[in-house]
Computed example of a mutant assay.
Amino acid sequence: MSTAPRARQSGIGPLLREWRERRRVSQLELALRADSSARHLSFVETGRSRPSEELVLRLAEHLDVPVRERNALLLAAGYAPRFAETPLDDPSMGALREGLERLLHGYEPYPALVVDATYTVIAANRGIAMLMEGIPESLLTPPLNAMRLTLHPEGLAPRIRNLREWRGHLLAQMERQIALDRSEALRAVYDEVKAYPVADRAGDDHGEGGEAVPYFALPMVIEHGGQVLSFVSSISTFNTPMDVTVAELAIETFLPADPATVKYLRSLAP
């Protein structure tokens, strides 16, 4: 989502105040964190003072503003964007692409994938391909979206034993991101997948035989090849990214949540 037009029109004051209120931080608290004064910060928010480029970056850091939006703050203050947005297929991203591919391959036979800020699938391993078996080609036409593939009535949704719980977890995750990042593109994906019908299915449970299995985290319990598999997911991002593209990448890995899932996946491995 481009924020440059809005940034130029409104100036940095309203944008900065909006981020501060989103983070529920007072002017005094933010000023102390950023080595400034509440008076100066008040002047910045009301348009009476122009902050230095260094102060804009310090404020953004202490407010945990996403990298893309830090560029918008800089533009609003009259400075050039600091963070590039380099396409993943750019030669300079070769080491990153190779590292991601090595990571995904090394996680096999367990599923893992890389997504961007709107859950568009950037890369995936054979564990993910295994889960996608049998999904209609209409849903597999690029660009693939992980949320759409998971919650669509013709996607993974009919196979997920605890769909209502897993769906609730995914929607809540997206809601938190929308609240923090103000992404209109992510909001569009959220509105789409939230509108998908959820079919009632008798005997939904977290295991076989109708008996709930205790887990250390909410699992995704899914059927595959006549087996019931259980996974808990973990999401990783890059530390201190200096590029918008890299900042918006997330690596999601699915950890087998029970010995039966481990055994089944290893039996499928080459």
Rank of each mutant, 00 (worst) to 15 (best):
A179V: 00
E133F: 03
D200L: 12
P111K: 15
G134V: 11
V65A: 11
A172L: 08
Q177M: 01
H224F: 08
L139H: 12
F238I: 06
R50Q: 15
D191M: 14
L41W: 05
M147P: 00
G134T: 11
L88E: 12
V114T: 13
A250K: 11
A80C: 04
V114G: 06
R161I: 04
L156D: 04
L140H: 06
Y215F: 15
P219F: 07
E184A: 14
A195R: 14
V56P: 01
D200K: 08
Q27A: 15
G134W: 13
R266K: 14
D204W: 11
E45M: 04
N71F: 05
R126S: 14
M130H: 15
E192A: 06
L151S: 03
P241F: 06
Q177L: 03
V65W: 13
T86A: 05
L171R: 12
W19S: 04
A60M: 05
L151V: 00
M93N: 07
L249E: 10
G207A: 11
A38Y: 11
P81K: 15
D64A: 14
H224Y: 10
Y79I: 00
Q227W: 14
A77P: 02
A250G: 10
M147N: 03
P197I: 08
V262L: 06
H224S: 09
I135R: 11
S267T: 05
T150P: 02
P259I: 09
Y107S: 00
R39K: 09
P241K: 06
Q227E: 14
R187F: 11
A76V: 03
T3F: 15
D258R: 04
L180V: 08
V246E: 09
A123F: 06
P136F: 12
P91V: 05
G226P: 02
A7L: 05
L32A: 11
W166E: 06
A185K: 15
T3A: 14
A7R: 02
E211A: 14
H152E: 07
G13N: 12
E53Q: 14
T3W: 15
G168D: 04
R201Y: 13
G106M: 01
S230C: 02
P143I: 05
T150Y: 15
D90S: 10
E184K: 10
A80H: 11
L265I: 01
E69Y: 13
P197G: 05
S92T: 02
L218R: 11
P111F: 12
I235W: 06
A7F: 08
D191N: 13
T240M: 09
Q173F: 12
P5M: 07
P87D: 09
P136V: 01
T86R: 01
